[in-house]
Design a protein around this nucleic acid. Structure first.
Lengths: 125, 125
DNA sequence: CTACCTGCAAAAGGTTTGCATAGCC
DNA sequence: GGCTATGCAAACCTTTTGCAGGTAG
């Protein structure tokens, strides 16, 4: 993969923003620094970066996929009230992949855990 | 919600098929019994059934969403080799939602756990 | 009879792709 | 210089929606 300032910017944007942006948001943030960047380039690079395991794609089932710059194991909590997506540290005493491998004949490579609920602010409403 | 033979058929199709079909597959299966059913009706009913919690939507991030007729807690293992989606029974001794609620201030309502890996047949290849 | 549901087709997202040009190595 | 990446726009695919007619209650 050849170097490009567009891809570097996209990667930085995702890594330095804990907001788990969708493609369009990445595009808008990137455009602040590189006004000519195109949406096609953003999509192409999101795909390339995901395939190279430099970022991760999060399937949220309501609208567009989100992108996450964290590669270590953790999971996501999505507030059904305000839409915010938060990282949660995994339980260091419990390994879900091991559980799955012990109970099936699969070799697990990747886990996505998404929980939906209400954050403290939205619980009152 | 008023009764309709289209919706009943769609619900039956999903409940009696452990394949976690996407919308188009539901449409094709339903068309065998009701050749005039339209794709729009399938989508409308998948949405209605999901919103009434009679089926569940599974976000798999590669292509279309899948639908699941099982409502009890369980998780999904997707084979990256052959694309098969399998149900896995949850660990009855460990409650991930409780863990999340204990470590955040969220009230968790729904959990989606998707693991990707290789089934026994695809591990050899 | 009224409100909801259907089939059809068009529209609306979101994402990918073809092409000519620009930029890295 | 060659090969990859970009910008732009068109194409693509999935899902939603407007409309006129049909059906359940």
């Amino acid at each position: 993969m050849k170097n490009s300032k567009q891809r570097n910017l996209i990667l930085d944007t995702i890594i330095n923003n804990p907001v788990h942006p969708i493609a369009k948001e990445v595009y808008e943030m990137a455009r602040e620094k590189l006004p000519n960047i195109s949406l096609g380039t953003v999509y192409r690079n999101l795909r390339a970066l995901t395939e190279s395991c430099l970022i991760r794609r999060i399937a949220v089932s309501d609208g567009s996929d989100r992108y996450d710059g964290r590669l270590d194991r953790h999971f996501h909590l999505i507030c059904s009230g305000c839409g915010r997506v938060e990282d949660v540290e995994p339980d260091k005493y419990y390994d879900l992949a091991k559980y799955a491998e012990a109970h099936t004949d699969y070799k697990v490579e990747e886990i996505d855990i998404i929980m939906r609920g209400y954050c403290s602010e939205c619980q009152g409403k």
